[in-house]
Amino acid sequence: MAMTARQRAKVSLYVQAGIFVVAVAAVILAVDWKTIGTSVFNFSKIGPMFPDIFLVGLKNTLIYTALAFVVGLSGGLLLALMKLSSFPLYRWLATGYIEFFRGVPALLVFIAFGYGVPLAFGVQWDVNIVVMVSLGMVASAYIAETLRAGLQAVPKGQMEAARSLGMPHWRAMISIVIPQAFKIVLPPLTNEIILLTKDSSLIYVLGLTASQYELTKFGRDGISSLGAGLTPLLVAGAFYLVITIPLSLLARKFESRSARTKR
């Protein structure tokens, strides 16, 4: 039987829709709705989460993310410049750092600085410091690669033109290369913030006081205190989306803008 391309496309569409309907029906039939209603979608008992989920959970998640990003951005810029340096030792150090911190799980870094430092040196760091150091150090490694790629994406002719006008190398970097690189890295940098927002949840492994809870820890605390099963975690998850989806849209906007102004 010979079908035209249009007929084949129609059949393919019907097959895909059929698979979807079957899959949804299977889920509906298989799920124990009564249990789910009390343990996952039990929104009747989550009242006590408010308003503290804003005042403590959301606030702390934002603070931890911001601290890590500030450290990550400055550390990342330093590492990126080291990696592009003409002095080989700097390049090696930066490469070693980046490979190490991109290669180990962020969770291990949290444990190392949260429990290892007190054990080794007998000092108890404030939780903000632990976040800045551990998440900041991991973020530096990722951001460094982003910034390096951005700096290298600026055409070589830009530096040559600037130097030909008598600018010293540092001046050409500051006035000509870095502003252009910054535009290029805005979308990936925004994605970096999204990753940091989520990774800030790893701090749950440390012993936190109630006022230090961020969204995930706040949600886990609700699991044990509210008797609504996993519902508090679902609420916490929704709050992450409140942060990350706008950032994601922002990144897309930056992307389309830089695509438009591309010469």
Partner: peptide, 20 residues
């Protein structure tokens, strides 16, 4: 070099204007 280059104008094949 920086002082010398002030006195030497350079025009490139691909212009190399600063797009920002």
């Amino acid at each position: 070099l920086n002082r010398m280059r002030r006195n030497v104008g350079m025009v490139f094949q691909h212009f190399n204007l600063f797009p920002h």
